[in-house]
Simulated assay, not measured.
Amino acid sequence: MDHPTLDLALDAAALTARLVDFPSVSGEEKGLADAVEEALRALPHLTVDRDGDAVVARTNLGRAERVILAGHIDTVPIAGNVPSRLDGDGVLWGCGTSDMKSGVAVQLRIAATVPEPNRDLTFVFYDHEEVAADLNGLKRLAERHPDWLAGDFAVLLEPTDAKVEGGCQGTLRVRVETTGRRAHSARSWLGENAIHKAAPVLARLAAYEPRRVDIDGLTYREGLNAVMIEGGHAGNVIPDACAVIVNFRFAPDRGEEAALAHVREVFDGYEVVLTDSAPGALPGLSHPAAAAFVEAIGAELAPKDGWTDVARFSALGIPAINYGPGDPKLAHTREEHVATAAVLAAERNLRTWLTS
């Protein structure tokens, strides 16, 4: 055995520290995936499968309902914040404490200590979440092994500061392009300035009034914003091309095609080129398992302001929510940390839901 092991007898807070001390930057997850697989294969009530550096474990008790608990095992690059450090106030510091090794620790503890849950469980530990979407381990599992992800309801243990965040926004980016005629800036009247022609595009964005949409009692706020401008050749050249890069964050009641059609309508008369797009996910709070989850843990409900992998479950027809002990505002920061009490509370809450 050429790698450290994971002791699932540790509580979720101590296990979080152990996971943080096990570096797993995106693309370098193999050692941690090996340890997770080994720890889960030692549990006789689970069947375990692996694809690349993603590990999936399942109970097979014949329950009427199957719930998926999912989380990614990779982190962003370490910023001098490994190994972990526990301070006197019960705060654990280190890369991945919030996003999302505390959530992974909770998954592992439930896998180890709830052998006969009231619902069948599927535990998904996947790789490459923090990098390009085409590398995402959950995407790969959905394409190669959709049967491994079969279920009625999913909880993604991304950091939510212990709130239940329903669904997620969709997102797309477009280039709104203008063209002109190139000329020497000393004879600007001979040209047409494509950057100047972008001014009405910015004016439309400044005047845009985004929707607020209520779904399952949650209010999703849309946003249409310029995030970058590209154009210009040199300090003495009238530019003949310009592009305003626009990001549309849309409520999950819109599909990707409807969202793009809306953006094209806003910029009617301009060339609009789609560069990337991802669908949102409906909150799924009306599902009986979600209602039981919310009742069991008594958490505050909120919309997910952003995109998460719950959208991948939604695309498979599985309602999903986000719930995890970390603070999302601390994700990817040098000062990333999590309160050990919050990790232990998340462990207790999930156990209550799955055993009551």
Rank of each mutant, 00 (worst) to 15 (best):
R109F: 00
R109E: 00
R109C: 07
R109I: 03
R109T: 05
I110W: 00
I110K: 00
I110T: 03
I110M: 00
A111T: 00
A111D: 05
A111K: 05
A111Y: 03
A112M: 02
A112H: 03
T113A: 08
T113D: 12
T113E: 10
P115R: 00
P115G: 10
P115M: 09
E116I: 05
E116D: 07
E116P: 02
E116F: 08
P117C: 08
N118T: 05
R119A: 15
R119Y: 15
R119P: 11
R119I: 05
D120I: 00
D120Y: 05
D120L: 08
D120T: 11
D120N: 09
D120V: 03
L121E: 10
L121T: 09
L121G: 12
L121Q: 12
L121N: 15
L121V: 08
L121A: 13
L121D: 10
T122G: 08
T122R: 13
T122L: 11
T122E: 09
F123C: 01
F123H: 09
V124D: 07
F125C: 04
F125M: 10
F125W: 06
F125R: 11
Y126I: 00
Y126V: 03
Y126K: 01
Y126W: 13
D127Q: 12
D127K: 02
D127C: 07
D127H: 14
H128L: 07
H128A: 13
H128P: 02
E129M: 03
E129P: 06
E130A: 11
E130Y: 07
E130N: 14
V131K: 10
V131L: 09
V131S: 12
V131M: 12
A133S: 07
A133L: 13
A133I: 11
D134Y: 13
D134H: 11
L135T: 10
L135S: 05
L135C: 04
L135G: 02
L135Y: 09
L135H: 14
N136D: 13
N136M: 11
N136A: 04
N136E: 07
G137I: 01
G137N: 12
G137E: 14
L138V: 01
L138G: 03
L138T: 04
K139L: 15
K139M: 13
K139T: 14
R140I: 01
R140G: 02
R140D: 02
R140F: 00
L141K: 11
A142M: 06
E143S: 08
E143P: 02
R144K: 12
R144H: 10
R144D: 07
H145S: 08
H145N: 05
P146M: 02
D147A: 14
D147R: 14
D147L: 10
D147Y: 03
D147H: 15
D147I: 10
W148L: 10
W148P: 06
W148I: 06
L149A: 07
L149P: 04
L149M: 05
A150Y: 01
A150Q: 03
